[in-house]
Design a binder for these strands. Structure first.
Length: 802
DNA sequence: CGCCCCCGCGCA
DNA sequence: GCGCGGGGGCGG
């Protein structure tokens, strides 16, 4: 087994295969599949993943592995197989799936340098270029006055050499420690000799005499209320020494979490958890769907199931949608399992993520709570995988590899023979339909653990408001209720459903709308910088004074961003203290938590925000939830728009009156008769499910069919259309008779970054080998992709159709 | 003929 | 993804 099979770090379809390398004697013993290696590839050096070892190769002249980056495999054999499966399933490259399973810092960093080999004088230009340095980064060749030709020549003459560097981006955090450098009696001697004015030094030295153990530099300085200079003085006298030690970054101080113990379960909870516990005991795989209303105690079921898994010596993965609900979730998991929990979510720095990942990798924890990619946690003894808020969009990755965490979880659950739990108050139609068919095991929690009724939902017809002459964003009902709550010292959550309502700029005179010159999309107005920005290509320009089309000065921004609502709100109810929560106010690290804490401390009456406030928040003093525009996402060209509206309204209603105070919800809409709004107001999921299933059946959408979306983009409009057309034509020839292909149609954003985008959609029931078929199809365009900058992307289960 | 740019290929 | 090498264009 002296040959390694390697997937190299070159993201190109022609390289999407293993390459064989000779394993040098010195690595024979230690090299295992799942390790990263440095290999020669053509004239350069790159990183690769060893996926297997073998004795034979169809190539007779193999190159040798140059170096090994890891001491232990960073991908288990299970994850190597999973990566392969995922690449084939999602039509991605192997290298892409491997990278997606690992923390960012394990990716390679490439550098190219030029080294001067001779002391003899070079040409004037080269001398100027090297500027008395021996090694120069290769990028500097550009704009340096030295031609590539000259460099080539100098290399040939042996005067200079090119070096390729491959580095792991890993950064480890080090902390400086101090300890005495000499025997105690020598320190005592030095203390006696020390002049009286060196008070701080004396104190510190006394400390070291009493505590000869090592101590962290920063802690010491803090404790003595002094500066580094005191330490430096002692270091200079060689009385103490300093050394650096690696520490793991810990984004959460475990000691601050109050320990909790199992709660008594309700009858319904016990019924739901029983079969799960049994599966855990018997090492049996099945998918469970827990459909439980908000407040029905799903989390407690997760916690107790995980306790069983831990007791068996196995491990648990808990997926949560994203940062917005993580702080409270983290608290519950850390509270129950303490330092046995690793947390992986997008708000952590790369370094913090890496350290949390390593705690999993080193088997220092048994539980991981995290966002989508945590489904790849390198556990080897999984006992359960839980996906909370199963319906959330964020479980679908929207770039390569376009996977859904649910599918990966189920695949891993089968491998480890362990249960997979999907939990939601509003399951996706796909999951609920599977539960109805018996593919998933269904558990329903209809009662809240505190026996409280769900808050009452009042629908306000905004058309009536218009007729009554109220043209503001706030209905009279909502206004009165808000004022009343503020008077009573209670709090309010206001949801602005911003999607489809971005703040674009339009001329009131001629109707001209300012669009991005590179993308067919209206520019979004950002007030604080007075700038117009494109959300797709980050193009920006300043807000024009006059309409570029008719020169009128009546050019204004339209739409309703949270900023405008905030202004309108303070005008409407001047005494209201408003906290605004949106992408702008939560961009900075920790800003999210800070805002929520402010609100929890009652520093504001109203929390105003976008979708991000709909989920998981739990404030005891909130008694009113207002939804400003319930139907703003209802009319988007997406077959899931009703489902998303229902989910959002249900989620946000769950934010009111979770504790002693009764809650109320006011939903403003222009289409109160729509079933998703009406049924959400009555918390009737089942009815909604039935009604929506009828619609899906009628128009043949999931879960009745599967979807695949192929998008083609090119600078040339005609090429984009024609290529899509060819793909459609080819597909028709090979698909089953009940399969339908729609298109070509322009993408919802027909032009982005100066490229035209066309798409086609495949709707099918039985296509056992669609991936292979599409792969072959795309293969025909390989040449065009390569030299003509054609792009074809495939999404096997599109979520965002727009 | 020498110099330079561009394209296509192959990488184990 | 990227460096190489061959082909071709161009100036002398």
């Amino acid at each position: 087994m002296n040959i390694a099979k390697v997937i190299v770090d070159v993201p190109a379809s022609s390289i999407n295969q293993t390459f064989d390398y000779q394993i040098p004697e010195r690595f024979q013993e230690m090299l295992k599949p799942g390790m990263r290696v440095m290999v020669p590839f053509g004239p350069r050096k790159i990183m690769g993943y060893v996926v297997g070892r073998t004795n034979e190769s169809s190539f007779d002249q193999l190159k040798e592995i140059i170096d090994v980056f890891d001491l232990t495999p960073i991908l288990t054999t299970e994850l190597l197989d999973l990566g392969k499966w995922l690449a084939e399933e999602t039509l991605s490259l192997y290298i892409t799936t491997f990278q997606a399973m690992l923390p960012q810092v394990l990716k390679a960093n490439y550098k190219k340098e030029l080294e001067r080999l001779t002391s003899a004088s070079l040409s004037d230009q080269l001398e100027a270029f090297f500027d008395r340095r021996d090694v120069v980064p290769y990028e500097e060749v550009e704009n340096s006055g030295v031609s590539f030709y000259q460099i080539q020549k100098a290399i040939q003459d042996g005067d200079i050499a090119v070096h390729y560097l491959v580095k792991s981006r890993v950064t480890k955090k080090h902390v400086t420690f101090l300890k005495p450098a000499r025997d105690i009696h020598l320190l005592e001697e030095a203390l006696r000799d020390m002049p009286n004015r060196a008070r701080k030094q004396q104190e510190m030295l006394t400390f070291f005499i009493d505590h000869p153990q090592e101590i962290e530099l920063n802690k010491l300085i803090k404790e003595f209320g002094t500066t580094r200079s005191t330490v430096n003085a002692l270091l200079k006298k060689e009385l103490i020494t300093s050394f650096r030690k690696e520490v793991f970054r810990n984004p959460y101080d475990d000691s601050v979490f109050e320990q909790t113990t199992s709660l008594e379960l309700t009858e319904q909870q016990r019924e739901a958890i029983e079969p799960i516990k049994q599966h855990i005991q018997e090492n049996r795989h099945d998918v469970f769907l827990i459909h439980g209303v908000t407040g029905s105690g799903k989390t407690e079921i997760y916690l107790q199931a995980i306790q069983d898994v831990i007791d068996k010596g196995k491990e648990a993965i808990v997926l949560v949608p994203e940062i917005s609900l993580t702080p409270q979730m983290v608290k519950r998991f850390k509270g129950r399992f303490g330092s046995n929990v690793a947390v992986l979510h997008s708000a952590l720095s790369y370094g913090e993520k890496y350290d949390e990942w390593r705690r999993i990798h080193r088997k220092e924890v048994q539980v991981v709570v995290g966002a989508r990619s945590a489904v790849f946690a390198p556990f080897e003894n999984l006992g359960i995988i839980i996906i909370d808020e199963e319906h959330e969009n964020s479980y679908k990755q929207e770039d390569q590899p376009r996977y859904h965490a649910r599918d990966v979880a189920i695949h891993r659950g089968e491998y480890h023979r362990c249960p997979v739990i999907l939990g939601s108050a509003t399951p996706t139609l796909e999951s609920y339909a599977r539960a109805q068919k018996g593919v998933y095991k269904l558990a329903t929690l209809t009662k809240r653990t505190n026996e409280k009724a769900m808050p009452e939902v009042n629908i306000v017809d905004m058309r009536d408001e218009l007729h009554a002459g109220n043209r503001s964003m706030f209905s009279r009902n909502l206004k009165e209720n808000m004022e009343q709550r503020i008077r009573r010292g209670e709090q309010i959550v206001l949801l602005l459903n911003r999607r489809g309502y971005s703040t674009f700029v339009m001329c009131r005179e001629c109707g001209y709308v300012k669009e991005c010159p590179h993308c067919d999309i209206a520019l979004t107005f950002h007030k604080h910088q007075n700038q117009l920005k494109c959300h797709y290509c980050s193009y920006e320009e300043s807000m024009p004074m006059y309409c570029p089309s008719c020169s009128s000065d009546l050019i204004r921004f339209f739409g309703t961003g949270t900023q405008r609502i905030e202004e309108a709100l303070t005008q409407l109810i001047p005494e209201a203290r408003v906290l605004r929560m949106d992408v702008d106010t939560t961009r900075r690290k920790g800003a999210h938590e800070k805002l929520l804490n402010q609100f929890a401390n009652k520093e504001a009456d109203i929390l105003l925000g976008t979708q991000m406030i709909a989920k998981g928040l739990d404030f005891e003093n909130v008694t009113l939830v207002g939804v400003l525009t319930a139907d703003s996402m209802l009319h988007l060209p997406d077959f899931r728009s009703s489902e998303k509206t229902f989910q959002l309204l249900t989620q946000v209603s769950g934010r009111a009156g979770r504790h002693d105070l009764p809650g109320e919800v006011i939903v403003q809409t222009y289409t109160p008769e729509h079933y998703s709004i009406e049924l959400a107001s009555r918390y009737n999921y089942l009815r909604f499910y039935q009604q929506e299933m009828q619609t899906r059946k009628k128009f043949q959408y999931p879960p009745y069919v599967f979807l695949t979306l192929i998008t083609v983009s090119h600078q040339n409009h005609v090429t984009a259309v024609q290529t899509t057309q060819q793909i459609v034509k080819n597909l028709w020839k090979h698909v089953q008779s009940d399969t339908v292909i729609l298109g070509p149609t322009p993408s919802p954003i027909p032009r982005m970054k100066d490229r035209f985008r066309y798409q086609c959609m495949i709707k099918y029931k039985h296509e056992s080998d669609l991936q292979r078929l599409i792969q072959k199809m795309i293969h025909q365009f390989d040449d065009e992709v390569r030299k003509n900058d054609l792009q074809i992307t495939v999404d096997m289960q599109p979520y965002q159709l727009m």
